[in-house]
Design a binder for these strands. Structure first.
Lengths: 222, 222
DNA sequence: GCTAACAAAATCGGATCCAATGAACAATAT
DNA sequence: ATATTGTTCATTGGATCCGATTTTGTTAGC
């Protein structure tokens, strides 16, 4: 008997549905920084009580996506230019390492997927898709490292800065640059050059950092 | 008006008290891997309802310290030798970077504190204190990096492996080695040699990794 | 004696209810 | 008029209650 088995027991609880939904909304920038998240409001929105909402909010708080103060409620967590810069440095360090480990073990399957996601990213006109497609591209290249813990931490770090990345991509000429750099990274992986892939990945991230920090500081002074 | 002001508003909620308490118990190994954490039991223990217990458990789950399955409850999360090894590699990468950034900015105040914690660690006979003293020592050396995000992630990674570290320190001759290496790291920082400090830190962590992995695998086969 | 079907107990996720706190606003005194 | 105090309202944290699911124990059949 061959079935697509699903891990029941991890089927969606109300809390996880709300969590995923809020996480997405925050990451995609639908909810602005500082926007208050009222438990009641969200509860009615999802036709539940406040209990699962609270669980979702505590999870989001643990991930740094919302800040919550006792009896005052939760707000979407913003980020300072300083923090953003640090997170990009952090990603640069980790993702460089991960891709370096990944390249020697990389399967043609993963390379194929990466190429497909690269194409989708290039073709996409929908800014809301960029984040997801970008993640899939990079994830395909990182996967074979087998470094699950690293990957989880990287994912979390991306969650924190993705909104700002999108804003930056929209404002500047960052999109063409991202495409160019993605292609270079892909080529390095296909060549099996781990050192080059790692170096390009780090530069890719640090470049984005610089553009973003400039952008954030220009907004601050404006 | 001069008063010793306390930041009320960040005063402990029942949930955070329970969270801290459980976190400590797990990290210090008082609760064994796989030990079930019954909401009711914990609630009576703290004289509260299950609600704050649930919040504490979801927070712990987010941090990877407990695993919880729907309708089945939460258990203390164990760790495989593979995961442990990965987390040590992860720490090695991050802590090396952090101390390298920290050394050039290090104040004599921090160096002094580090030396004090180093002494306390050496003098301590109480295994339950090791983890905390070890953290304080390293934290004093990392602090001036200003890399708060990195530090939070490192702290979380330490939470995941600290129990096993203690077991390993108790079982082997790791304690003298740790003291030797701590002293070397401290000396490098005092000399202002960032590259050396980073290198020693990485070796310090990777050495512990090897001992621990050997230990874990010997236990598995036993 | 062992297994399968069923019933009972334990436990969890979520709903509803109440108390504690903070914010907005009105009333009062200077 | 303004600052201060008191009051009301919105909102959160926690308690209690209920339905859903899993686990355990019991009984019937072989």
């Amino acid at each position: 008997m061959k079935l697509q088995a699903v891990d029941i027991g991890k089927t969606a609880s109300a809390a996880s549905i709300i969590f995923d939904s809020l996480r997405r909304a925050i990451i995609e920038g639908e909810l602005a920084d500082g926007e208050p998240l009222r438990q009641d409001e969200i509860a009615t929105l999802f036709n539940t009580s406040r209990i699962p909402v609270r669980e979702a909010l505590t999870r989001l708080e643990q991930q740094g996506l919302v800040e919550s103060r006792r009896y005052r409620g939760a707000v979407v967590a913003g980020i300072s230019a300083r923090e953003a810069a640090e997170i990009f440095d952090f990603r640069s360090l980790l993702e460089g390492e991960v891709i370096a480990v990944s390249v020697p073990r990389m399967t043609s399957q993963s390379l194929l997927e990466a190429r497909q996601h690269f194409q989708s990213f290039m073709d996409s006109e929908e800014p809301m898709e960029w984040g997801e497609l970008n993640r899939r591209f990079h994830y395909a290249l990182y996967r074979d490292s087998g470094l699950d813990y690293h990957l989880k931490v990287i994912d979390n770090a991306l969650d924190r800065v993705e909104r700002y990345l999108r804003a930056q991509l929209l404002m500047t000429e960052g999109l063409e640059q991202a495409n160019r750099e993605h292609l270079q990274i892909l080529a390095a992986c296909e060549k099996g050059d781990a050192v080059l892939a790692a170096d390009l990945t780090r530069q890719h991230i640090l470049g984005a950092k610089q553009t973003l920090v400039d952008y954030l500081e220009s907004r601050k002074s404006a």
